[in-house]
Design a protein around this nucleic acid. Structure first.
Lengths: 158, 158
DNA sequence: TGATATTGATCAGTATGCTGATCATCAGTA
DNA sequence: TACTGATGATCAGCATACTGATCAATATCA
């Protein structure tokens, strides 16, 4: 374990580094300008229209202080609407714009190509096993980061 | 593949997020103030005294523009010496200070505890398989990021 | 040798991600 | 109702990472 290259932490960082690079390359080649983080936020808002920022952060495991900037940039790009909630004046309701919906539809092939590209060295069986092991490790470690996943769909937050 | 949570890219990001949080928690609890990136740089310089910054970046797959700031902060903390090379006046030679060596020795147990913690949900066999699959995917994707790994030990750069 | 290309390092700018703080609002209770 | 605590959002500050540019020094080759 003395060699940093054999440490899980190093491998995690390196795989993530490649994943982001591949995502940006594929998306850019398809003519879009969207980061992995922005894509995940957009896709999550599509299936949760009117969601507030904290709940959004929980659904994709982003830090609450990070989500502010991400939403800022998506609003800036015209892909998102942020408006005050009528029920809770602290909260902001998030909605896709028509351009946001178009962007999501158009970008999907590039995103899926990127997912295949970042595991291109693995067989299908190996790729499936990698996903399974990552999910298992992530589930066990969920509470260890400041921004754990909050599965809102199950009503856990109620 | 429509659910972002099933995408390799999302899993990569989340695992890395947990890995960093675990590292910082363990290291901080042991009384040290060092990031994963700073640790890897320090450990690599220990076994490659006098290395220049570009070579260091290649050995741990950091971007060359990132390494400048990392080295800055390590020098600031008194763990590293950066001095001009006599053979190539463009280059900076990096050396550990005595405090840098002491820090590396003292921090090792915490670093190893962190590596175990971030895969605590897996059996030993599963953990080994996860490492193998990550290494394989990373090797195949090495050239896809701006900061690929350059294995200086094999003399590839000669 | 002299023009050209390459290389080591740095910088400005942008985008995550975090720590810790603040502010307004809401919810619960005495 | 007034107090207290919790919550949604934002902010300042710091540390990765990246894009693309610049500068000085070195290497290469006509």
């Amino acid at each position: 374990m003395r060699d940093p290259h054999e440490m899980p932490g190093h491998l995690a960082r390196r795989f993530q580094q490649i994943a982001v690079a591949v995502f940006l390359a594929e998306v850019s080649e398809a003519g879009f300008d969207l980061t992995p983080v922005q894509y995940a936020a957009l896709a999550t808002i599509r299936t949760n229209a009117g969601i507030d920022q904290i709940t959004l952060a929980g659904l994709i495991a982003y830090d609450r202080t990070t989500i502010t900037g991400v939403v800022d940039r998506l609003v800036q790009k015209g892909l998102l609407l942020r408006r005050a909630s009528s029920r809770d004046r602290r909260a902001r309701e998030l909605h896709l714009t028509e351009q946001g919906r178009r962007t999501l539809r158009g970008i999907t092939p590039a995103v899926e190509a990127a997912q295949r590209m970042m595991i291109r060295g693995l067989t299908d069986k190996e790729a499936a096993e990698l996903m399974r092991l990552l999910r298992k490790a992530i589930t066990a470690g969920n509470e260890l980061s400041r921004a754990p996943l909050r599965d809102g769909a199950t009503g856990e937050r109620s």
